[in-house]
Write a protein that binds this DNA or RNA. Sequence first.
RNA 1: GGGCGUAUAGCUCAGUUGGUUAGAGCACCUCCCUUACAAGGAGGUGGCCGGGGGUUCGAGUCCCUCUGCGCCCACCA
Length: 856
Amino acid sequence: MSTPAPDSRVPEKPTIDGLEDRWAQVWADQGTYRFDRTKTREQIYSIDTPPPTVSGSLHVGHVFSYTHTDCIARYQRMRGLEVFYPMGWDDNGLPTERRVQNYFGVRCDPSLPYDASYEPPATPDEKRQVPISRRNFVELCERLTIEDEKVFEQLWRRLGLSVDWSQSYQTIDERARRASQRAFLRNLARGEAYQSEAPTLWDVTFRTAVAQAELEDRERQGTYYRLGFPAADGTRVHIDTTRPELLAACVALVAHPDDERYQPLFGTTVRTPLFDVEVPVVAHHLADPEKGTGIAMICTFGDTTDVTWWRELALPTRPIIGWDGRILPETPEWLVSETGRETYAAIAGATSFTAKERMVEALTAAGYVEGDPRPTVQQVKFYEKGDKPLEIVTTRQWYIRNGGRDADLRARLVERGAEISWHPPYMQARYTSWVEGLNGDWLVSRQRFFGVSVPVWYRLDEHALPVYDEPIVPREDELPVDPSSDVPTGYDASQRGVAGGFMGDPDVMDTWATSSLSPQIAGLWETDADLWERLWPFDLRPQAHEIIRTWLFSSVVRAHLEDDVLPWKHAAISGWILDPDRKKMGKSKGNALTPVDLLDEHGADALRYWAASGRPGTDTAFDVGQMKIGRRLAIKLLNASKFVLGFDADLPDDLAVVTDPLDRAMLASLATVVDEATAAYDDYNYARALELTESFFWSFCDDHVELVKDRAYGARGPEAADSAKAALALALSVQLRLFAPVLPFVTEEVWGWWREGSVHRAPWPSTHELAGATGDAAIVTDVAGVLSGIRKAKSEAKVSMRVAVASAVVSGGAAEIARVREAAGDLAAAGRVGELSFLEADGPLAVVVTLAPESG
RNA sequence: GGGCGUAUAGCUCAGUUGGUUAGAGCACCUCCCUUACAAGGAGGUGGCCGGGGGUUCGAGUCCCUCUGCGCCCACCA
């Protein structure tokens, strides 16, 4: 495989500037990363790439985690696997909805018909948004996000992601909607999707139901009020509450069954203050004797515990909060007393905040508040994207079974988690604790306008009321459908909304109901069976740990229900980027340091170097210092390569030309690096592989190259020179390939100087290619140690490294001395030692240097 | 409250089944304009490896415990 001697392709002054645009273009033109779908499943490595949210902006955290995946992809490709590495764009969901509204000055109204010739206003008026149909809204979304996606794609190319850009999708595009609806209909047909009218966590700002996975607890200032409930015997039962505004919704008081203080009250009733409604005192084990007074009021519904009590104790439902978060305007029928109805009238229509103030005032005035209000800090549930506390309201929703209400399924899904190869392994604990803690099925319907529609209609009875029990479903070949504009088979458009006609389900599906199918979407499930069989199940799901409970889990649920398999074998979980002060990097700071700025300043390889230095799963500090080191490494790689290739060195046809013990020692050491780096990559540990490679490279430059320079120039004859040159070329070839996954640009540049094709399609190095030329690795270590001693002597004498030394005496054990002798010629030349002698002695290897008397 | 992770030089981090005097880069100090590289190179200063206890011939590494930090989970009125 001898190639012509290296030549003018090596530039005079190598530079990393401009490498990115140049090679990104070459890779695009030559289809370097194009997926070859003729390969079979065993020959393929398929990646379920996370679709970034295009309505947001890319920040340095994206660069971090996508680089990790790309390193793995490049490694697997060099191992000879055909890598399926697609890119999806997440343009589904609330963020896009808001962005489209503001950008075009429109809002979605699903009741409107589609207008094929619609054009948005030239100058958007944010205050007076124009209502348009859902289909028009989706079209505007696609129009807007196409621009966002171009920006993203360009950045990804510049960062060097080896994505096959012909394999891309959007989570709102037709193919994603079809997959999403198809999967839902399959769930429905198998009884895994069902409707239920039940108390639901509700965001009053967005006016939509929210799933358990979208919750987050936030600290809030609250106030305890102690209220006295009159009992039949004239005494009062005191409860502590932070939500006195819900008093009208009170259905019972509850205490722990073992609580002796309240045992006499169980089975009796008390009356609510002001509203004067008779409520029972009940017992339940969830009541905490330590909390407050040990007895609590149950309202429908103040929190999720209320829901549990309500359900398990079969209590009545007395809702007073509406979808808008305000107290319902009509006075409820269970309030019969004059005072009760008057009190209610005072809060009807008020926000819960105002209602609370008024209730406290009224209760205090009437003497029902005991003692002083006490401030407290409480954990309150919020929708993760919302800024008002969630309420609980009763609504009809769609659910998909995920084990939340079925112990067997839950256990099965926990097992599924154990079948995944987690990188790092401890991330499995997050999955397990989430699944084991589920307390309800997956709520998939959302009362939003933009998204993938729930693909069903309902027959309307003679009173024009929907018959929810018998949804009308489309055929799979009709998908995707929008029930708000499409008409089910057997009906015509005029029957929409009239008695005996039909209505479309108004809801859309949760964004995870689509994202959970990302492999199915990317792999053209049920669309291209040939491709699907070559990809499924996928090999790798890379993602962040914060969405294990959402994206990862919902994907596992979907694949389990549909195909009874895991969607992928491996899950590689990346950490977060932290500010230098170790807080999760905030939006403000993230925006100040955009990936484009960082690319401009440091270069893609440098940015990738920083990213790849972060161990898998570990939160990593944003560190400009690491980027500078990466940049320096890239430049060093260019210069060292130029120097090595300047010897007219080329890969040897026969490794027997590598005769020098030092050369063979260096290659032996490199063989160890190859083995260990390969093992690290097989374990998804790109950081370890990089560290090993880098560490070898620096000693290769500092010691080996310096030692063999003279010999390579021919100072000790052609045979000795050939050995040095062949070993240098071989070592360079191996090191370029070891670095290629992390530093794709600079390695490709150097590869282009002397090899054919792309380094990224070159075979991953193996010890096999070094096997014929390896020796005793300890020689390198020992000789480098002596050279370092000689340098130290010069450094301490404050003279230049080129200054000659008269003599140097190397002392040490017999074995060490023997090893150093093997490279005596190179050592004397590199150290400019006049007379090099050896002395066997006890103790560690050492060198005594005598500088030339007239030196200086 | 339960769980996971983490704690090593001033800073950011390695340290792979326990094995000689604990490593790298940055920063700092000294020196060198050396023919691959001065946006470089050579050398150096700097560490009770969070505290305590244990196992072992031997512990940064294994076990127990405590503490700090980060995160995940949980039915707290």
